[in-house]
Amino acid sequence: MLVAVSLTVTVTALLLAAWCGLAAYRDEPTNDRHFAGMAVVTLAALVQLVVSLVQLGHGDRPEQGVAVFLGYLIGAVCTIPAAAFMSLAERSRWGSAIVAAAGVILAVLELRLHDIWGAGHG
């Protein structure tokens, strides 16, 4: 797993969390710009999925097992889209809070993915 890709996902997720957290603080629901931001973060997570699958295909293996790694990887890809659907159902400040929480969760998942893969694998 490339550290640059993981770092990109983490930073974009935290930026989204801060942005939607501010919207929740201002008592605003998610809007089209927030959904564009969610799309960017999801795209970064999808790039990470593809890069990771290619590395697995080339024989690289995570230190803590392929099954655990794939479980976290799939969870990371699904986090922001799940929050997007939930924020559509909750058209209030709490929809923005849901997305903010999902951004933080995704950042934590990225740290765990890095740990599962192993720091020495790059």
Rank of each mutant, 00 (worst) to 15 (best):
A23H: 05
A23C: 06
A24R: 04
Y25K: 15
Y25A: 15
Y25L: 15
Y25R: 15
Y25V: 15
R26S: 06
R26C: 07
R26M: 09
R26Q: 10
D27Y: 05
E28F: 04
E28S: 06
E28R: 12
T30P: 03
T30M: 03
N31E: 08
N31C: 07
D32E: 11
D32L: 10
D32C: 05
D32Y: 02
R33P: 03
R33M: 09
H34Y: 05
H34E: 07
H34M: 09
F35L: 14
A36C: 08
A36S: 11
A36K: 11
A36I: 10
G37K: 02
M38V: 10
M38F: 04
M38Y: 03
A39F: 12
V40N: 07
V41P: 09
T42S: 14
L43C: 13
A44K: 09
A44R: 10
A44P: 07
A45M: 07
L46Q: 15
L46D: 15
V47E: 04
Q48K: 12
L49T: 10
L49F: 11
V50T: 13
V50H: 11
V50E: 13
V50K: 11
S52M: 06
L53W: 12
L53D: 14
Q55E: 14
L56V: 08
G57S: 14
G57M: 13
G57H: 13
G57F: 12
G57N: 14
G59K: 08
D60W: 04
D60Q: 10
D60T: 06
D60I: 05
D60Y: 03
D60H: 06
R61C: 10
P62W: 00
E63Q: 13
E63K: 12
E63N: 12
Q64A: 07
Q64W: 03
Q64R: 07
G65T: 02
G65N: 01
V66G: 02
V66A: 02
A67D: 02
V68L: 00
V68N: 00
G71W: 00
G71N: 01
Y72I: 01
Y72W: 03
L73K: 03
I74K: 02
I74E: 00
G75W: 01
